[in-house]
Design a binder for these strands. Structure first.
Lengths: 125, 125
DNA sequence: TCTATTGTATTATAATTATAGTACATTATC
DNA sequence: GATAATGTACTATAATTATAATACAATAGA
């Protein structure tokens, strides 16, 4: 399970922060395939937002195949079925890191700072 | 002078991205007090957005005392210190990492893979 | 079967964000 | 003084985001 947290000051829409945090959780291995995530109502209470906003995030991830939802039961991390070739993964890896550096540059964040931030977050898991 | 760049995928409002990039630019010393920044119309053309959106960003920064505007002349960096707190910097780091690690998840990239790729880049610098 | 819990759907409302178009006031410059 | 460029102001429109309240359908479990 992961801990959800909204940054009110960031300007990033709430539903979008939830989407990103779930995907981050999967990428970090803290959310495993088949694992249940909080119910729409529970997460809404926890984050002090409207259930519709949580539902919007979950729906978006279900359409993308990231989550499986079962009415009456709950919402679960999906079992990935799409296979991606190593070469494509490598290409995306480079692209993601390029983008990380470029985004960081806009806000005077160095490659090292970003790296160390990731390190801290990995260690605190 | 700084190079402005908008991240369309981030969900962060355009005017907000402009505000932050100017603030961080001043804080880092890449924008100097008294220096002229692009005109409302020029930046709008450059970023392919509406002039009103640029104007909104500039107005907000003028209220904060970060920019001085002179009708008929242009907009200039004010003689005022801009401080980016550690917590704000941390929030920005978190936001960028969340967004891009989440984006990598689409391609089955793990946090560890991204982290290690960054490490290799640092070593090759 | 009954009940509680789950996700889902709907309608309404409001605030925010962005665009489009137009116009005006101020300033520098020729 | 005339002109061009500047920031500013205004109205209108649309899409997005978030909330509120309600209801319905599916499931698990007593």
């Amino acid at each position: 399970m992961i801990e959800f947290k909204l940054d009110i000051k960031s300007g990033v829409p709430f539903y979008r922060q939830i989407v990103d945090q779930i995907r981050y959780g999967i990428a970090s291995g803290r959310l495993l395939p088949g694992e249940q995530i909080p119910t729409v109502r529970d997460l809404a209470v926890q984050l002090e937002i409207n259930p519709n906003t949580v539902s919007k995030a979950y729906s978006e991830l279900e359409i993308l195949g990231v989550l499986d939802t079962q009415q009456g039961t709950g919402t679960f991390v999906a079992h990935k079925e799409v296979e991606i070739t190593d070469s494509e993964k490598d290409r995306m890896l480079g692209q993601i890191c390029d983008e990380l550096v470029a985004r960081g540059q806009q806000y005077n964040l160095t490659l090292k700072e970003i790296y160390e931030h990731m390190q801290r977050r990995i260690e605190n898991e």
